Amino acid sequence: MSTAAEPTPDERTLYEQMGGADTFATIARVFYEGVATDPLLKPMYPEEDLGPAEERFRLFLSQYWGGPTTYSETRGHPRLRMRHAPFRVTPEARDRWLTHVMAGVDQADLPPELDALLRDYLERAAHAMVNTFV
């Protein structure tokens, strides 16, 4: 009876290499802990309970990095710019968003090369969401 060999590090998805569900849950949790007390960002979330937003963010990050496709199955295509269009995303809001999400990345404690890859993506995504300078 043969058993499947464990995948080598090179055969694992980025999602698996980054620590899977636990990593993205940590990032989303820490991010929304920051948002909850941020006077600029909190008003952008109409729900008093940030739990559903945290769950959506966790699902999005998980899917983007090669994990389960639950986000698309439940919400459709991410369409990040369209979903953020109703909100005034200024450079200050972007910077606050980055502060909170990077605190989550800090808590994830990823290997340096994966940490840099994730931070680069998040910075580029944050810059792309800016839709007003006033």
Rank of each mutant, 00 (worst) to 15 (best):
T3C: 01
P7F: 08
P7M: 02
T8V: 01
D10R: 04
E11I: 02
T13S: 15
T13P: 04
L14S: 09
Y15D: 09
Y15M: 05
G19K: 07
G20N: 12
G20F: 07
A21F: 12
D22Y: 03
T23E: 11
T23R: 05
F24R: 00
I27Q: 01
V30R: 01
V30T: 11
F31I: 01
E33R: 13
A36E: 14
D38C: 11
P39N: 01
L41S: 07
E47L: 14
D49V: 04
E54A: 04
R58A: 09
R58F: 11
S62Q: 08
G66P: 04
G67W: 02
R75V: 06
G76A: 01
G76L: 06
H77N: 13
R79Y: 10
R79F: 10
M82Q: 15
M82W: 12
R83S: 05
A85Q: 15
P86G: 10
P91L: 04
A93Y: 03
R94Q: 13
L98M: 14
M102W: 00
M102L: 15
A103H: 12
V105D: 03
Q107T: 06
A108G: 02
L110P: 02
P112G: 02
P112T: 01
L114P: 03
A116E: 12
A116S: 10
R119C: 05
R119G: 01
R119I: 00
D120S: 08
Y121C: 00
L122D: 05
L122K: 03
E123T: 13
E123A: 06
E123S: 06
R124V: 01
R124E: 07
A125H: 00
A126P: 07
A126V: 09
A128L: 11
V130S: 00
N131W: 08
T132P: 07
V134T: 13
